[in-house]
Design a protein around this nucleic acid. Structure first.
Length: 368
DNA sequence: TCTGGGGTCCTAGGACCC
DNA sequence: TCTGGGGTCCTAGGACCC
């Protein structure tokens, strides 16, 4: 028996969720995002149907550009709770058959399957696809391989609506012609750095890296070469729980008055604390981030003496961090603020209170 | 064309400890 | 007086993903 990974990716997820409620829109160019004809907005495309993609519309594209490329698009504003519920339906459906489901993003999940032959694993994938279509009414693409990374790359090649199976002995030849950019984790910057060494495809990576590139890419470089050669890959851990939670707000126009930003920081901190309380999470680190008008970012973080909770604790820490951040900026470039964010991490479950430390909670050694 | 709102992981330097 | 090597934690920034 061979252990296979099925990597399931829902096609055009947000749009597909909307089409469940609006089947009359099937086959039309549908975009989820703020409608640019309803006034100026700084929004971007969250999801586009394949009919809209035919006009060059892509996820994360500013909506004004998308509107110009596809003037007849049907715009639907995002409904994140709806998408969260749909993701739960998909995971529940998969859990019914496979037990353990590894959720990898809102629209992706992996399951493990034991099968003697690649054809058997492929058949299971097609059954899953048909089941999700019939029971959850969502279209999917599925990659099948013996590692999660290769299965994910296969699922990309399967879009839309297909199944791609990669046999263990064919991994290197399957990957070789693909651009290095197809590797999850290789974006525009890494692609450009690899190109300076003459590396464009995964096949180029399989030949190994020159000494200078080995130094430059370190562990990541070794991972690329192992993957490219079809060698065994150490998989990331199954997702154990949230590592961080944040809340941000982009202003309609860039802001130069720190008091206006402080009001937003306070509101974000309280929203965040409320959602942490719902999840019963206590945090130990708070951070504040600013995206400036030139789109560069600055962050400031502070780790508390002990895990804490409560809106007041997030808010006062965040406010202090923002004051420091602002003071440093005011002494220098004095840019306007485009986006402000409040961030928490290093979670402990709220139930995990240690009696011996309880007395120090929120009143530990003074924090600068 | 002018860039959201979530997230994850990695790197690198300094502090601090043994 | 000048000096090690290794490990962990904290902070800031960056790349990347959906």
């Amino acid at each position: 028996m061979v252990r296979w990974v099925l990597y399931i990716d829902i096609d055009a997820f947000y749009v597909s969720c909307e089409l469940r409620d609006r089947p009359d829109l099937a086959g039309r160019p549908v975009i989820v995002g703020p409608d640019p004809s309803k006034g100026p907005t700084r929004g971007v495309v969250l999801s586009a149907s394949y009919e809209a993609r035919a006009f060059g519309v892509r996820s994360a594209m500013p909506v004004g550009e998308a509107g110009r490329r596809c003037p007849d698009a049907i715009w639907i504003s995002a409904d994140f709770p709806k998408y969260g519920r749909a993701a739960e339906e998909v995971r529940a459906r998969l859990a019914l058959r496979f037990g353990d489901v590894v959720p990898l993003s809102i629209d992706e999940a992996a399951v493990r399957v034991e099968a003697a032959e690649a054809d058997d694993a492929g058949r299971v994938a097609r059954e899953v696809q048909a089941d999700l279509k019939a029971e959850v009414h969502l279209p999917s693409s599925i990659g099948v391989a013996t590692s999660r990374t290769v299965a994910k790359i296969a699922s990309d090649r399967a879009k839309p609506g297909g199944v791609v199976v990669v046999r263990p002995e064919s991994v290197a030849s399957f990957l070789a012609p693909l651009p290095a950019r197809s590797i999850p984790g290789v974006g525009p910057k890494t692609e450009a750095r690899l190109a300076t060494y003459g590396i464009a495809t995964i096949g180029d990576l399989a030949k190994g890296l020159p000494l200078a590139a080995r130094r430059e890419f370190g562990d990541t470089g070794r991972f690329f070469v192992r993957l490219a050669r079809g060698e065994e890959i150490i998989e990331g851990p199954d997702v154990l729980g949230p590592r961080s939670r944040s809340s941000d707000r982009t202003f309609e126009a860039d802001v130069s008055d720190p008091r206006e930003v402080e009001v937003a920081v306070d509101r974000l901190a309280r929203e965040l604390a409320e959602s942490l309380a719902k999840e019963r999470l206590r945090f130990q680190t708070v951070a504040v981030g600013v995206r400036w008008e030139d789109f560069s970012r600055t962050t400031r973080s502070r780790t508390l003496a002990a895990a804490a909770d409560g809106a007041e604790r997030v808010a006062t820490t965040a406010r202090r961090l923002f004051e420091e951040l602002w003071a440093a900026e005011a002494a220098g470039r004095q840019r306007k603020v485009r986006t402000v964010s409040v961030h928490t991490e290093r979670f402990r479950p709220a139930t995990d209170r240690q009696r011996t430390l309880d007395g120090f909670d929120g009143a530990g050694p003074p924090v600068k």
